[in-house]
C-alpha cells in the first residue's frame, strides 16, 4: 500500500493523503461528472430505454435522431451563434469599461473618488431581481423587446467588474512604473493602454471568461425579452423544448447537451485559468 505514495513530496508536518482521501476525491469526481454523462445517455436513448427498470446505463444509438428532433423544434445553430455573439460582446465591453474605471479608481486622484467607489460597492449588495420589472418596462419603451440589444446593452457594465479591476490594478501595477511612464510625456490613455493593460491581462481575461459564462447561462432575462425563435439564445431554446412537448426527456436532454457541450469544450481549454480566478477571490457567487 505504501509503495505508490513513497515518492510523495517531502512536507514536514503533514500526514500523507491516505487511500480515504483519494476515495473522497474520486467520489466527488464521479458525482461531478456523472450528470453530464447521464445527459448524453438519455439524449441518445429512445423512450423505451428511458422508461425501463433497471435503467440502461450506457448510451443508446439514437443520438443523431434526437438532435434531429431538437432541430425540428428550434434552430440550435442559430441559437448558439446568438448566445456566442451576446456573450463575447458583453465580455469585451465589461472588461474594457471595468478596467478603465478600475484604473481611475486605483491610480488617479480626482474629486469624489472615495464616494464613488463606496457607491459602486454599495450597489453590489442589491439583488438583481429588484430592477427586473422596471428594466422590462424600460426595454419595452425603447423598442428592444425581441432583439439581442435587450440582452447586450443593459449588461455592458457591471459594478462587480469595476470593483475587481480596481483591486487587481491596485495590487499588480506599481505606482513607480506609472510615474516613470508618465515622465516620458505619455498621455494617461497611452499609459493605460501600454503599461496597465499588459500587466493585468491575465486577470482581465479571467473576468472576461466569467462574464461570458454568466451571459451564456443567463436564463430569466432572455426568456422574458426574446419571443421569436430566430433571436433565441441557447438557454431560451432549451426552455422552448421543455414547453413544446409532453415531457420528452430525450428531447430535453438533447437540448441541454447542445447548450452545454460548447461550455465543456471551452472548460477543457481554460479550466485551469478559471480555477486560479476563483482562488484569487475573483468571482462573486
Amino acid at each position: 500500500m505504501k509503495m505508490p505514495f513513497a515518492r510523495a513530496n517531502f512536507a514536514p508536518g503533514w500526514h500523507r493523503v491516505r487511500i480515504g482521501g483519494y476515495l473522497s476525491l474520486g467520489l466527488i469526481t464521479f458525482i461531478s461528472v456523472f450528470p453530464f454523462y447521464w445527459m448524453f445517455v438519455v439524449a441518445s436513448s429512445g423512450t423505451e430505454e428511458i422508461s425501463k427498470m433497471p435503467p440502461s446505463l450506457t448510451p443508446g444509438p439514437r443520438f443523431m435522431t434526437v438532435i434531429g428532433h431538437v432541430y425540428e423544434v428550434v434552430d440550435f445553430t442559430r441559437a448558439l451563434l446568438n448566445t456566442a455573439f451576446v456573450g463575447v460582446t458583453v465580455a469585451i465591453a465589461q472588461v474594457l469599461f471595468s478596467a478603465l474605471a478600475g484604473f481611475a479608481f486605483a491610480k488617479l486622484n480626482f474629486r469624489g473618488r472615495r464616494f464613488m467607489i463606496l457607491f459602486v460597492i454599495g450597489t453590489m449588495m442589491l439583488p438583481s431581481q429588484l430592477g427586473i420589472i422596471p428594466l422590462f418596462i424600460m426595454v419595452s419603451k425603447l423598442g428592444w423587446i425581441d432583439s439581442l440589444t435587450a440582452l447586450i446593452v443593459p449588461a455592458l457594465v457591471a459594478a462587480f467588474g469595476v470593483f475587481w479591476m480596481r483591486q487587481v490594478i491596485d495590487a499588480q501595477v506599481p505606482n513607480e512604473l506609472l510615474e516613470a511612464a508618465s515622465i516620458d510625456q505619455a498621455g494617461v490613455l497611452r499609459v493605460f493602454w501600454h503599461v496597465v493593460l499588459p500587466i493585468i491581462r491575465q486577470s482581465a481575461f479571467v473576468l472576461g471568461l466569467f462574464t461570458f459564462l454568466a451571459s451564456w447561462n443567463d436564463f430569466l432575462w432572455p426568456t422574458l425579452v426574446l419571443t421569436s425563435p430566430s433571436n433565441f439564445t441557447a438557454q431560451v431554446a432549451v426552455n422552448q423544448l421543455k414547453a413544446s412537448y409532453v415531457l420528452d426527456y430525450a428531447l430535453n436532454l438533447g437540448g441541454a447537451f447542445m447548450a452545454t457541450a460548447p461550455l465543456l469544450l471551452l472548460f477543457v481549454i481554460v479550466g485551469r485559468k478559471l480555477v486560479q480566478g476563483v482562488m484569487d477571490g475573483a468571482v462573486k457567487g
Binding site: 461531478s32 441557447a234 432549451v238 479550466g271
Partner: peptide, 19 residues
C-alpha cells in the same frame, strides 16, 4: 482535482435542473 471540482459550476442552472 481542482479543475474537476469546478466543472459543475460552469454549466447553466437550467441544464442542470433538467438533468
Amino acid at each position: 482535482w481542482r479543475t474537476i471540482l469546478l466543472v459543475p459550476n460552469i454549466t447553466s442552472v437550467l441544464a442542470v435542473a433538467i438533468i
